[in-house]
Design a protein around this nucleic acid. Structure first.
Lengths: 217, 217
DNA sequence: TTTTGGTAAACTGTTGACAGTTTATCGGGC
DNA sequence: GCCCGATAAACTGTCAACAGTTTACCAAAA
């Protein structure tokens, strides 16, 4: 992290902190000092405070008069995160099946085929800031055309999932299984069957949940 | 609104603004000036800024370099709010059916019976800051024991719904119908049937959605 | 060696001021 | 009478400093 020059200092600081947390520079549970962060970014505490407040409840938790810490996951928190995700993504898939434009599913399928070849040729070892899986889910969240749901998924759920994913191994074979489930979802989207699309997505999220929880001690 | 004396000025300001928006003192679409609000509350702009930032995306929308406005609802936004609500409350009902303690349903039923007598004796004309309907839904959100979902429902969805409810009339007969649907939900919670509880809740939310949308021009 | 008490540093909450931008007002031109 | 541009007021973004609290450290006592 080096000095800030861009547009709005607060927004810039916000993205820097997100980046630092997502990338692992800031560990879960670590305290973030306003003053020190302001020094490192070369700005005053005002915009930093603003940025940290925007992250509250999403990536950091705040204790009055004490400070801000990066959120940390126990099994309980992770399970609850998956409940939220199942509800939101299920609805997103339903709405996408109902309202998304015709060419959407084709593009989504193309995205998926490209990703599956990636997996085939390089295994799971590739480090990407946004995984193919995440791209797929983001595309559906966008296609839901529901700003509320989209916002919560993009700004809270996926961020928190990345914190967890970066630090815990995945179950072997899960990627292949996930790919199959993705194709299930696509099939229901293509059929314009909202109920089935929702259920396919929810089954996929539930499977991901059990996989994540099982590798977690 | 008068001068602030309490604990944390920012939190105090936050609640004052929420109160002002919910109660109708601040109209939807109205611009909120940081400076003027700070003057009215007798504090400096710092805590006010903080409070308004915490409200961003929930009760106000911010445009850089211009300011914050109270969110305003079109049909599109209201519909999307109900989509979000259906997803979250459906999952909340499912979790409540699965995990809520045994005495929860009894208390919920007692709450509902008390409310139904309220309706019978005084019609819909009673003005309460929290409606009986809202109490019912809040109780289930709490019983879901899922902090994520609870937080979004309590801090975003219900606030936004109140903004809308306060300003638009309800369809005649809807209260009675809603009460019946509430008893349906209770029945499924009592039966500890997660899937049916979720579907009953979702049907209830969908009915509320159609009712709200139909009275909206 | 461990515990306890006190002091000092660090940090959060808050304030008032400054800079640049947006918005409103008002006078002139068509 | 209506539209347009210049000036002024208001406002947001940012900063540096102050006050009160928390935390860390260190020395003295058990």
């Amino acid at each position: 992290m080096d000095r800030i020059v861009g547009t709005s200092l607060a927004s810039e600081a916000f993205e820097r902190v997100v980046e630092a947390i997502i990338s692992g520079e800031f560990e879960p549970g670590q305290k973030i000092s306003e003053a020190e962060l302001a020094r490192r970014l070369g700005i005053s505490r005002g915009p930093v405070r603003e940025a940290l407040h925007r992250l509250e409840g999403r990536l950091v938790s705040r204790v009055p008069r004490i400070g801000v810490r990066v959120i940390s996951f126990g099994q309980t928190e992770l399970r609850q995160l998956y409940y939220l995700r199942e509800a939101l993504e299920g609805m997103a898939a339903r709405l996408a099946a109902e309202f998304a434009p015709d060419n959407f599913v084709d593009e989504l399928e193309a995205l998926l085929l490209r990703d599956s070849s990636d997996i085939a040729e390089s295994g799971q070892s590739v480090y990407r800031q946004r995984s193919p899986d995440e791209d797929f889910h983001i595309a559906i969240a966008r296609a839901s055309n529901c700003e509320n749901i989209q916002r919560i998924l993009l700004n809270e759920v996926y961020y928190q999932l990345r914190i967890h994913r970066l630090r815990s191994s995945r179950k072997p074979g899960r990627a292949d299984q996930a790919l199959k489930e993705h194709f299930d979802i696509i099939a229901q989207l293509k059929a314009r069957n909202p109920g089935a699309a929702e259920e396919a997505m929810r089954a996929h999220v539930r499977a991901a949940r059990e996989s994540s929880l099982s590798v977690m001690s």
